[in-house]
Nucleic acid binder design. Structure first.
Lengths: 128, 128
DNA sequence: CAGCATCCGACATGATACTG
DNA sequence: CAGTATCATGTCGGATGCTG
């Protein structure tokens, strides 16, 4: 064994790392929008998805979809046709993640005002 | 009126933007760890916080704390002493956010295995 | 002690061009 | 149509040095 074993810091724990990783995932620019666009639907084509999500670049959409697929949150089905057709569907796991995110959504929904008021106050040009 | 009104894209909505923003916030490298470190405690000093969080740089910890303060999630109290003392405490709002994040936490807790299995499968060197 | 200013490299994102 | 490859750019985060 070599230098690899020297762990200068606890790194919290493996699971903690995954929690943060998943949080990062759902928080990144497109993931949530993609999940949202897939929720309740089946076999959505790449181009439809791109329209639904908004102005996502093709590159970023592809990347996002690959990550979601790797994590088992969506399924990707390629049809061997001559204009290629690829369809995406949320897996049950992905569906459940969508539900979990709902908690955050509700929190924001309930507290937008609080946050915005606090920000205005904080940003206020130091009066007097 | 003027050019301001030309919205080239729906941008989902103002609230949606805030939802993503809050998600980004809790997902960034340190926020969650800071909230975690503050949960259930009161008046935690900067240096204690830094120890608790781990190997966060002073710059990033400061930045994180400022954001949280601006959003009204933590309170910052400066004591006019000669070795400066600054103490941070979660506000009720911050506390409630911590609770909301729990949903995500639980989801990950419940599905780490699923995700990791999926990844192993995805990453598996195309057998055969 | 707590925080700010600066420099710098790593990475994420976007635009563009090309392909099965 | 649904990608992949390449290049340009912007931002993030870390390291360092200075200060009230």
């Amino acid at each position: 064994m070599a230098v690899h074993d020297v762990k200068p810091r606890p790194v919290v724990s493996k699971k903690d790392a995954l929690v943060r990783e998943m949080l990062e995932r759902v928080a990144d620019k497109w993931t949530l929008l993609v999940i949202d666009a897939l929720e309740g639907k089946r076999d959505v084509r790449f181009s439809r998805l791109r329209e639904a999500v908004g102005d996502v670049s093709q590159k970023m959409l592809t990347k996002t979809l690959r990550q979601l697929e790797r994590d088992g949150l969506i399924s990707r089905r390629v049809h061997a046709e001559v204009p290629p057709r690829v369809e995406y569907t949320l897996t049950p796991l992905g569906d459940s993640l969508g539900a979990a995110v709902c908690g955050m959504w509700k929190w924001v929904d309930a507290h937008v005002e609080d946050v915005e008021r606090s920000r205005r106050k904080y940003d206020a040009p130091a009066q007097r």
